[in-house]
């Protein structure tokens, strides 16, 4: 009798908690939409067709920022994917068990570093190097490099989980056939786990689009469509972080709209990732 009762309470508690977390997401979407409504209701085309971003004169062109977010994400993925993939292959390989475990630990530590620390590292280590090629050094390339370092753990941990849960027969079969390491990786492993690789990219894209502090500190933040990797960029999230504290009225609503836009993109990415086969959470 007593046990049944406590079980019931526990189940109800679970129900309440999961209901609450679901409700929080809906409330966030509701409030962000509500705050952005004053500008969206004028004309959503304003975000693309206005002459420039100058909120004090009711000009809300978000296009340079949207492209900034897109380019820096693309750049970071291009750098992080091969590094992350090869790291994962290396430390999942049974032949390097001891050294592999050390690498795995360092990657896990990397995943835990707060983003503002990456930003400071970018300013003191990356920006001065790029300065020598093209002053002032705070630009799209610097932001993509710093961001890629933040994505490496996400990609690595995802892919290594996929490799570890791959059937052991793949490797045994490959060895039996006399395939060498590179033939095994390119002909068997990559085709075998390609949906997980795709998922890891989607999750990394979500993280990259949402990253704010680290990018803000090294990207220059000039509002302009970048024409080369040495041009400064401002991302949507940096724009919110830089201006929200002092924004009022329509300016504030425009910033909320860009937040809503990001929210929708990132949540649809994670929905796609979940649909596409089972997601392997690190």
């Amino acid at each position: 009798m007593y046990q049944q009762n406590s079980n019931k309470i526990f189940l109800n508690l679970l129900r309440l908690m999961s209901f609450t977390s679901g409700l929080i997401v809906l409330m966030i979407i509701f409030f962000v939409s509500k705050e952005s409504w004053p500008v969206i209701s004028i004309d959503p085309k304003k975000f693309f067709l206005d002459l420039l971003w100058d909120p004090s004169r009711q000009q809300f062109n978000l296009l340079p920022m949207a492209l900034g977010s897109l380019f820096v994400t693309l750049g970071a993925i291009i750098i992080a994917l091969p590094i992350g993939f090869m790291t994962a292959v290396f430390y999942s390989n049974t032949r390097f068990r001891k050294f592999g475990r050390i690498i795995q630990t360092t990657i896990e530590i990397l995943a835990g570093i707060p983003s503002v620390v990456f930003g400071f590292w970018g300013i003191v280590a990356i920006v001065p190097i790029i300065y020598k090629i093209s002053p002032p050094g705070a630009n799209l390339l610097a932001a993509a490099i710093v961001l890629s370092v933040m994505l490496i753990p996400t990609i690595t941990l995802f892919i290594s989980n996929a490799i570890k849960s791959a059937p052991v027969e793949w490797e045994l079969g490959a060895r039996g056939l006399g395939l060498d390491e590179s033939q095994f990786v390119f002909n068997i492993l990559i085709p075998g786990i390609k949906s997980q690789i795709f998922n890891s990219i989607l999750i990394a894209v979500g993280r990259a689009l949402g990253e704010t502090m680290a990018v803000l500190m090294v990207s220059g933040n000039i509002i302009k469509v970048p024409l080369s990797v040495f041009d400064p960029i401002r991302t949507l999230t940096s724009n919110i972080a830089l201006e929200m504290a002092y924004a009022m009225d329509h300016h504030r609503a425009a910033l909320f709209s860009s937040g809503l836009f990001l929210l929708l993109i990132v949540s649809s990415l994670s929905v796609i990732a979940n649909r596409k086969g089972r997601a392997f959470y690190a």
Binding site: S56, I123, V124, Y131, M217, L242
Partner: peptide, 27 residues
């Protein structure tokens, strides 16, 4: 006016500005 200024880098708070000035020669 804000839009007249020809900046190379735009930054948020004092600390970020100082970090940038500190690491960029000629800033």
């Amino acid at each position: 006016q804000y839009t007249n200024v020809q900046a190379d880098i735009i930054i948020g708070d004092n600390e970020q500005a100082i970090k940038n000035i500190d690491s960029i020669p000629g800033a």
